[in-house]
């Protein structure tokens, strides 16, 4: 087991290195001059000689005059020390720019994942057990609708009814601006602001896992060993949870671990609609602003998360299914 994990970690380092080279080349190959883009707004204010000097200084500071290999090794050296350079848009260290949205994304996603799992797994199991019942059919219809409606429409509908029409919840944002009150009251205000996006995040993610769990459970319930278990006179609860669910869990576990790992990734549309400072919005905004130091840092972070997630999935197979061994 340890040997396997060690080998996988070596493999992860290799893949991470290759990805870092590819991503660095990709973003540095994009046409455009970031130095010029940075100082262009100052052009009207400066005299030509000063503009030229500033342009040269900015290029030198960004290392744009160096060969690509030099730039990559310098960037990698800093990255290993968790120095991802400066954000062009904010003119601040990337790590300072990424920290608040990452904290927020993890916080809201943990809630969303817990609520989502708490709803989808029982719902998936129940609809599989009660296959073709009215309840099952209703859930199928609603999950199809959930699949089909774009997230921004769902978000707008919830915002319109809960915030604009009924005024039950704040429309967007992360807290009431210039909130006056105690720390506890502020905390309550922040939670109020999270409710609506959390509902939308949960609602829009219910469909896939519910249907996946249902399909896996239905397959498990059709197996001969279930008939045997029932024939032995086991209680239906024991048949479902001890026999069917455990076998259904194997294909579902990949999805669930993937979902849990997604607590680090943002949801651009929901974050934009609700004006939340999360990772999805930061990533897309940085791409639009060609703030590639931020984009590179975020992407490499996701590469790392994906590699760790894959390792966890493989290891979890061994835990869930004794037939699977992870020593090789």
């Amino acid at each position: 087991m340890l040997k396997y994990v060690f080998k996988r970690i070596l493999y992860m380092i290799f893949v991470f290195s290759v990805m870092s080279i590819l991503l660095f080349i990709l973003y540095n190959g994009i046409q455009g001059d970031p130095a010029r883009a940075e100082i262009e707004p100052m052009k009207m204010k400066l005299e030509p000689a000063q503009y030229e000097q500033l342009y040269r200084e900015t290029r030198a500071r960004m290392g744009l005059d160096d060969p690509l290999v030099t730039r990559y090794t310098r960037w990698l050296g800093k990255t290993i020390r968790l120095d991802f350079g400066q954000s062009i848009r904010y003119q601040r260290p990337v790590i300072d720019v990424v920290k608040p949205p990452l904290q927020f994304t993890i916080k809201i996603n943990i809630f969303a994942v817990i609520i989502g799992l708490a709803i989808t797994i029982p719902l998936g199991i129940f609809t599989a057990v009660k296959k073709n019942s009215i309840f099952d059919k209703s859930v199928q219809v609603f999950t199809i609708i959930g699949y089909s409606i774009p997230v921004f429409i769902t978000a707008l509908l919830f915002m319109y009814f809960f915030a604009v029409r009924w005024r039950l919840l704040p429309l967007n944002g992360m807290e009431t601006p210039n909130f006056k009150g105690t720390a506890a009251e502020l905390r309550a205000d922040q939670i109020r602001h999270l409710i609506l996006p959390l509902i939308v995040m949960t609602v829009t993610s219910l469909a896939s896992i519910t249907r996946y769990v249902r399909a896996a459970m239905m397959e498990a319930l059709s197996m001969d060993y279930i008939k045997t278990a029932r024939a032995k006179g086991l209680k239906e609860k024991a048949v479902i949870f001890s026999h069917a669910w455990r076998n259904a869990l194997l294909p579902v576990i990949t999805l669930i671990i993937g979902w849990i790992m997604s607590i680090f990734s943002g949801a651009f549309i929901i974050e934009s609609m609700f004006n939340l400072n999360g990772m999805g919005k930061l990533y897309i905004d940085s791409l639009y602003a060609k703030d590639f130091n931020v984009v590179l840092a975020v992407q490499l972070f996701y590469v790392l998360i994906a590699l760790i997630g894959n390792l966890l999935v493989d290891l979890s197979y061994g835990v869930v299914d004794p037939r699977v061994r992870v020593n090789e």
Partner: peptide
């Protein structure tokens, strides 16, 4: 107070006092 608004919802923000 200066805060960021989103184009899609800015008038709802004005309407609701955000």
């Amino acid at each position: 107070v200066f805060k960021k608004t989103e184009d899609a919802t800015q008038f709802d923000e004005l309407r609701t006092g955000v």
